[in-house]
Design a protein around this nucleic acid. Structure first.
Lengths: 133, 133
DNA sequence: CCACAAGTTGACGTTAACGTAAACGTAATT
DNA sequence: AATTACGTTTACGTTAACGTCAACTTGTGG
């Protein structure tokens, strides 16, 4: 057995692969990189995205669906990583996390309210259909 | 009793009042009007906003907090009003409402997922604080 | 009457989040 | 060698959602 045994080869992706999987353009991925949201490694000049990059992209896109800006998503992503190691930094981070959670809770209430409104609107439509007969 | 008795005088608002109440600029209110989202009446040249305008503004802003574009909010607002009166229009509207509801349900799931993630992140922070002691 | 506040309509500036195009390198296929 | 299919960087264009003037009119108190 001359070859070494890599226990767990991390999956990596080319820009085109990620782009297609998540239905974004390659331009978008490069743009996210410019903004510091993704840090693919390189083979020569070609970008190679790690599983971590993929996850972060997922988070960015989820953020977008929530109406967050890229900067906001960036903040959240930083919250997931253990960035600071001393107590003060961690306390600051906890604060930031709680802030974001409050904001999202508020958003959730707006969302639920809107859903209720839409349900009532639909109900009224159905009713008015009945009366037209 | 010479004076007539108005049973229910609808409240009306000046641009400044609405702006302050909702913490937007007057420029914003005029902008929404340009886009057809608000239709204040006029006394001379001065805009006078009705209670209905106020409600619509509320909906627009709630939409914004959800990350909706103005156009999307406009759509939703139209859904609340009974715009079309014949069966076909109503059926079309019901479809649109259901579409929007599906979209928002999806968004709600993203939101709940993110909230869970943040909760775990916070938990990890607290843990690492314990270990630092 | 006159200042001053608050209203109005343009018209141009700004930021975010990409799109689009030019001009080029590289690797495999024909 | 030439075409095709990717990749790269650099740079300018675009849309949404306002901000920021400038230049005006209108209403009110001193």
């Amino acid at each position: 057995m001359a070859s070494s045994k890599p226990k767990h080869v991390e999956k990596s992706y080319l820009i085109r692969e990620l782009a297609e999987e998540f239905n974004v353009t390659t331009r978008t991925l490069r743009f996210y990189e410019e903004k510091g949201l993704l840090k693919p490694s390189r083979i020569g000049a070609t970008r190679v995205y790690s599983a971590a990059d993929r996850t972060r992209l997922k988070l960015i896109l989820r953020g977008k669906r929530l109406g967050l800006s890229l900067d906001e998503s960036a903040e959240i992503i930083l919250m997931y990583d253990p960035v600071g190691t001393n107590s003060k930094q961690i306390l600051t981070l906890i604060d930031a996390i709680q802030d974001k959670r409050l904001q999202l809770e508020k958003q959730k209430q707006d969302l639920e309210q809107t859903l209720e409104d839409l349900q009532r609107a639909e109900q009224r439509c159905v009713e008015s259909l009945k009366h037209i007969h």
